[in-house]
């Protein structure tokens, strides 16, 4: 019973961070700040959602799988953000934004 309430609470806070990240994506003026908002908020949000799900997980294997998912998303997210930032830095904004 406690596990369920904990899960709901954690997932809700996680969603809150996601919402913040999306708001940042829409509001911030340039690429770098948008990247910043996305990676920070969404990774934390994902962490909280995964934490919430851990309580629902069947056994240790599932918990480890969830953690693996989180780790992979972290690695992929950071690399992608770095690549986008680097490209924007080397030769200006995307044409499509102009």
């Amino acid at each position: 019973m406690i596990a369920n309430t904990l899960t709901v609470l954690l997932i809700l806070t996680g969603l809150g961070f996601f919402a913040a990240g999306t708001a940042g994506l829409l509001r911030f003026p340039d690429v770098y700040s948008r990247l910043h908002a996305l990676t920070k908020a969404d990774n934390v949000g994902l962490g909280l959602v995964i934490l919430g799900l851990m309580f629902q997980a069947g056994g240790l294997a599932d918990v480890l799988k969830l953690l693996l998912i989180w780790a992979l998303v972290l690695a992929a997210g950071t690399t992608a953000a770095h690549m986008v930032a680097q490209r924007t830095w080397t030769h200006g904004d995307f044409e499509s934004d102009r």
């Binding site: 690695a75 690399t79 770095h82 690549m83 680097q86």
Partner: peptide, 13 residues
């Protein structure tokens, strides 16, 4: 892509 980030991550991923 210049810099070690991409090769590094790839070695992991």
């Amino acid at each position: 892509a210049p810099g070690p980030i991409l090769p590094g991550t790839l070695r992991l991923l």
